[in-house]
Design a protein around this nucleic acid. Sequence first.
DNA 1: ACATTAATTGTGT
DNA 2: ACACAATTAATGT
Length: 216
Amino acid sequence: MKLDIQTLQGHFGNLFEANLLQELSQVGNYMEVEEGFTLMRSGGYIRSIPILLNGSVKILRADSEGREALLYYLGGLDSCAMSLTCCLDQRPSEITAIADEKTKLISIPVEKIDEWISKYSTWKQFVFSTYQKRFDDLLGAIDQIAFHKLDERLLGLLNRKSKQCGCNVFNITHEELGQELATSREVVSRLLKQLERLGRVKLSRNKIELLNTDKV
DNA sequence: ACATTAATTGTGT
DNA sequence: ACACAATTAATGT
């Protein structure tokens, strides 16, 4: 099903130039999918890429066990950066895309993606900013994972020290802990603050007291 | 007891 | 990571 230019303009506003909107309306395939609909299966080749008009789509990656980890969500006028690369390289998809709610999207044939990049600067910008957005998302996700690991390492270190000296009060500075964990003093301070808020630890200058060592 | 200084810790960017 | 504020301990007078 095709969309007329007016409708497209309603969605994209002045993001795209007039000629591009024209082509979009000619070659773009408009579709509505229900929640749970699989737009893209890992391993499959991609013939077209989606641009969301509304709704949202979750992007998953299958791990070695066959479990699927959530990478990020697409929403708004997002497109899928992964599928953009897959298209250009003619490679199979490494991700799975499933509609998270009823979603309206417009689907663009692969060959147009490449063609438009050299033809329309606004399209090039769109593709570029799509990458940028996804990249930022992934960076954020990595940060959180790294943060969690450090969180556990810090608790582990404190527990080891507790075992060593047979008590649960240490005379140590955040700076020193940071060196043991190969991280900065600020990070240790922030982690400890969180642990204090959780009641796992009591903080004072040059001193850290381990609490609740009996319970988990 | 008070002021001064240095070290440690907390927080925003 | 850096910069700065806030807090606390240590020291000198």
